[in-house]
Amino acid sequence: MKKTLLLLVALFFLSCEIEYDGETKLVVKGKVLLENNLPLSNHEVKLFVRRESSSIPFIFYVPSETNFVGKATTNENGDYTMVIPKPKSNYNEIIIEINSNSPYHKRQIRNIDSDDFSNFELNIGTEKLFQRENLANLYINLNQVNANFQFLNINYIGDYTDEIKYFKPLSDEYIDYFDNLSKLVKKNQELVIQWEVRNNSTNIVSTFEELLIIDEQESIQFTINY
């Protein structure tokens, strides 16, 4: 029993901080555009490595931890490159923060890990920032009116964004599903909402769509009856 406790204590001290491979470097590249598709130059991009808290009851508790490990500034074309030390296995995700405090909306790319890098390099592609004052909050309400029908997914056609984007789908489908029921949408546009519903009695999947006029309102509620 005493040896087990000593081993657990040793593991605690070994894992109390996020560790990095100081000899191995990772390269992150991307581009930042404005809502009018013009490049955003001289804009700071940051990178964080995060770990969730963990514990063994009555033995030890490791708090959550977020390390700021890299930053870059976009050039005249909106492109950026940053080099970071490779985090070891005791972390949960790499987070790229495109924007946090400016006239533009907040933007993070999350759920990245070192396995997503090819030859130590990752290009996250192009991210578009909207003026905060030009965005409205759209909320989708689901109203099941037929017990045989199952709501499958939803898609948006138009100018929209999210404060958080997952580089790859989350393993928890429940979280993925509900994250997609709210969007930041650009004001003064025609937004098409598409959704799929399965009839579990016939196993037939039907697609529906509706045109939604987005005006100057700050918040919009839209109900889907299925």
Rank of each mutant, 00 (worst) to 15 (best):
E17V: 00
F208P: 08
I140C: 04
T66F: 00
V27P: 02
Q150C: 13
K71C: 05
Y61H: 13
T207C: 12
N141P: 03
F58I: 12
A136D: 08
Y177G: 03
H105C: 02
E44A: 09
L212W: 01
F60C: 02
F120G: 07
F222S: 05
N99L: 04
G125I: 07
F130G: 00
I18L: 01
K88M: 12
H43R: 06
I140G: 04
L170T: 07
T202P: 03
E216C: 04
I96H: 07
K25N: 08
S15K: 07
T126P: 02
E93I: 00
N146S: 10
L40F: 01
V69F: 01
L34V: 05
N42S: 15
N111F: 04
N42Q: 13
Q131E: 14
D172Q: 08
S53T: 01
Q131T: 09
V32P: 03
W195Y: 15
S64A: 13
I59G: 02
L34E: 11
I98Q: 11
S118I: 15
K31T: 11
S89E: 11
F151L: 03
N92K: 11
I59W: 10
S114R: 08
L122F: 08
M82N: 02
V145K: 15
K71G: 05
E209Y: 14
K187L: 04
F167C: 03
E163V: 10
K88D: 06
Y160M: 08
V9C: 11
E190L: 14
F208S: 11
S41N: 07
F68P: 03
E93C: 06
N180S: 13
D179Y: 09
E173M: 10
L34P: 02
F13I: 08
N225Q: 14
P87H: 00
T161R: 01
S55H: 09
E127D: 13
N141H: 14
G78W: 02
I109R: 03
S54R: 11
S53Q: 15
L184R: 05
D113A: 01
G125F: 02
Y166H: 09
Y174T: 09
L181N: 02
I109L: 12
I98W: 02
Q189H: 03
S201L: 15
A72I: 04
V62Y: 05
N148C: 06
I98V: 12
S171M: 09
F13R: 01
E218P: 02
E218F: 04
E52I: 04
I56K: 07
S182Q: 10
I193D: 07
N67W: 01
I95R: 02
R198A: 14
N148D: 15
E76F: 14
Y139K: 13
S171Q: 15
K168E: 11
S102W: 00
K183L: 12
N119A: 13
T223P: 08
V69K: 06
F48K: 05
N77H: 09
F178V: 12
K186A: 09
Y80D: 06
N123H: 05
I59F: 13
V49G: 06
T223W: 03
N92S: 09
I18D: 02
Q131H: 07
F120A: 09
L38D: 14
V27R: 04
Q221H: 15
S206G: 06
